[in-house]
Amino acid sequence: MRNMIAALAGALFGTGLYLSGMTDTQKVQGFLDFFGSWDPTLAFVMGGAILPMAVAWAMTRTRRPVTGGDFPARPDARLDRKLIIGAVLFGAGWGLVGLCPGPALASLGFGGLGGIIFLIAMLAGMMIAPKARRILDTPRTAG
């Protein structure tokens, strides 16, 4: 049951990414190009995706997950160095070629060699990330 639900979610996610044009790196870089010919499509995709998600979050208040267990804990309000450094690195890579993890996976079937290289490099980055997190966790001594 959990696997069926996960597959359904993946199918909806992939179809949505494809139809919205987010597997096209030109549209993503076009959105990030605020000082050039700005393409607002990504804002519509975000807005459209946030609507059903907001309804779902509201529904979590009065029920439990269909397959049992608990919903994720309340979001942590604390901002830390890892969140900011991670977001900066991710944003830099995202802007560089216009791919983020979801569309990179969704376009794997038609993205050619470049798509495969991006995925392998992304997996390598994810593999070394725990080490980077540990370094960022160590408190820095003054001076």
Partner: peptide
């Protein structure tokens, strides 16, 4: 492409 993939993988898991 390779550099971008590395940054995306590293950044998303750190953040």
């Amino acid at each position: 492409v390779g550099v971008a993939g590395l940054l995306v993988g590293l950044g998303t898991r750190i953040g």
